[in-house]
Design a protein around this nucleic acid. Structure first.
Lengths: 350, 350
DNA sequence: CTGAAAGCGCTTACAG
DNA sequence: CTGAAAGCGCTTACAG
């Protein structure tokens, strides 16, 4: 466990200067500050008092908390299970609340006694993730993933399985397949949309942008989505909904409108945990285990911290899988439509 | 912010002795240790290094984590929202991992830099809650509630609304009403069962213990429960299921067995957050807002900590409400039964 | 078992 | 802007 003295030696400055950098005193040149912060991270410095040592891993979120979502809840459950296998504790931090504008993230984390960060990333928050990674503070990204030279992510690849899902629909005979995703585009959704396009392309089906939807990832938006989808001039016969709450909301709304899934509409959903089992009919879905993602992010971060010497985190990429259940079937013989007011239409001819 | 010196003065000992107590040195008489720990809590002592002060609120759970459950996820979301209104951070602690057998909970929390604890209580963990409260460490209980002279709880009263729920079923004409609850009995479930008994009693209906069920609070157990309920010699026509995942599992399984809810069976469920909207038909339910409970527990604890001087937490009791949706209706004209293999039975006469 | 005192990690006026 | 040194909170061998 490095002390301020070792950091000072490593950086070739006095302990007073190291202290000033840690406490963000303005009386330090940018050059010296950068050199010291570099040493802080490469020595794995962490403040301690007597025998007591702060050993926290931070779950960092930015913007409004989504911790109640099934995805985040499962992530957290996995992290807490992993926590029990280490001697690190998990603290939840929101830098936008009390990170001072003039301090770096490393300084912010040191002030909190944090030794590594799990970044619950979103597309909006990518810049924060990049900044933290650029400071070389130990970190794992989760939730969103993107190219970065030093930031590692824990995620499940859902591109191949998304392609399987669309091919499954095509094999069943569907030609008009809609796509819906969270309005917040992230690495996973980019992959899923790419898979959708490639699968349609491979089958010689053109992409119709009018049945590609972006909606907020909430149940009520899934309900509204169904009404929108079914009221276009030529409604799709199948849809791939890449977010669990949207898929659940859509399936329940179908029953409210008197539709039968999969007879009137085939639905491939997405499941981060267990959602597919909570709707009727049990949802055909691309599935990932968010609990495991949280677990792996925590363990990998703990490993890098314990190793010390500025050891980097590695990517932890797990597998998703495509599970055929009861919400998909052949396309309807008669095409079905629903007017905005809920009136049900059935075409007379094919 | 009290230092070790003030605690020493308050307790009438040297700073060395205070330090020994905090670090749990065996070389202190029980009498002195008790006196010092008393002073530590009444001075609101918290260890600090230089300007840095640890200001954590701990979410304490014991036994296997249930943080992924909808109830716990909603609690946590509420706590994190509340956190943003204070300058305290939330750390998740599992004392069974690293609390040393010979240290008190106060010592354990000081070692972690924790100033107050939210105790995610269960019936199994009541003794831990009592011990922490007896040490007068600032704490709020949540999840389970029971009588204790110094421990305050955040909970929603669900007794009155549970009684409304049963009376609603009786008014609809039901005479044979089953009851199902989490196998882990806690203060809330005691209330709900008492309400069930009182409402039946008030209507002159006897309690039949053979249709009172205790099952694990998981979806699969809700599915199994339905099979059990419907295969008793004279199946109930309605059931009050006091846990969300059990209620959801039961309602979905009914569709798998070809039953129609509420035609064949009326179901009153329980909802901590939003579950009632995720099943079809939308569930008639006693509802509470777990997000709000988490929020209030955090705010009340933060208030007591900021007030200092050993200020006590107060109970934060909120309201539940009974919401009539689509899973309840009049009893079936013909009584319905399901054999263990799934065969559906309908009685010929009344 | 307890306190006075030396010592550690860190911070901060003071000197240059 | 930086370091040597005094000082704070805390811990711990040492003395009794």
């Amino acid at each position: 466990m490095a002390t301020i003295r070792q950091v000072a030696k490593h950086a070739g400055v006095s302990i007073a200067t190291v202290s000033r950098v840690i406490n963000n005193s303005p009386a330090v040149t940018d050059e010296v500050r950068a050199k010291v912060l570099e040493s802080v991270n490469s020595c794995g410095y962490v403040p301690n008092v007597g025998r007591r040592t702060t050993s926290f891993i931070a779950l960092v979120y930015s913007g409004p908390s989504s911790l109640g979502s099934p995805y985040d809840a499962a992530l957290l459950e996995g992290m807490v299970q992993a926590m029990d296998l280490t001697d690190l504790d998990l603290v939840i931090l929101n830098p936008s609340r009390d990170k001072r504008p003039d301090e770096s993230y490393t300084q912010f984390f040191l002030r909190k006694g944090v030794r590594g960060a799990i970044l619950r990333s979103t597309v909006e928050g990518r810049q924060i993730c990049r900044t933290i990674a650029d400071e070389k503070f130990p970190a794992m990204g989760i939730g969103d993933h993107f190219e970065h030279p030093t930031l590692a992510f824990a995620y499940a690849d859902s591109k191949t399985t998304s392609r399987q899902a669309i091919e499954h629909l095509i094999t069943l005979g569907h030609q008009r397949i809609a796509f819906a995703a969270n309005e917040h585009e992230d690495g996973d959704h980019v992959d899923r949309y790419a898979a959708y396009c490639e699968a349609l392309d491979g089958a010689g089906i053109g992409i119709d942008r009018s049945i590609v939807y972006r909606v907020p990832a909430r149940r009520v938006n899934g309900a509204q989505l169904l009404r929108n989808v079914m009221s276009v001039p030529k409604p799709p016969t199948a849809i791939y909904v890449t977010d669990p709450p949207i898929a659940m909301g859509l399936i329940n709304e179908a029953r409210n409108l008197g539709m039968d899934i999969p007879r009137d509409l085939s639905v491939v959903g997405f499941d981060d945990n267990d959602s597919r089992n909570f709707v009727f009919p049990k949802m055909t879905a691309v599935c990932q285990d968010a609990r495991q993602l949280g677990h792996e992010a925590f363990i990998e971060l703990a490993r890098a911290i314990e190793a010390g010497n500025g050891e980097r985190c590695q990517h932890r990429i797990s597998s998703s899988w495509f599970e055929i259940n009861n919400s998909t079937g052949p396309p309807p013989v008669k095409s079905v439509g629903i007017l905005p007011d809920g009136t049900r239409l059935e075409a007379v001819g094919p």
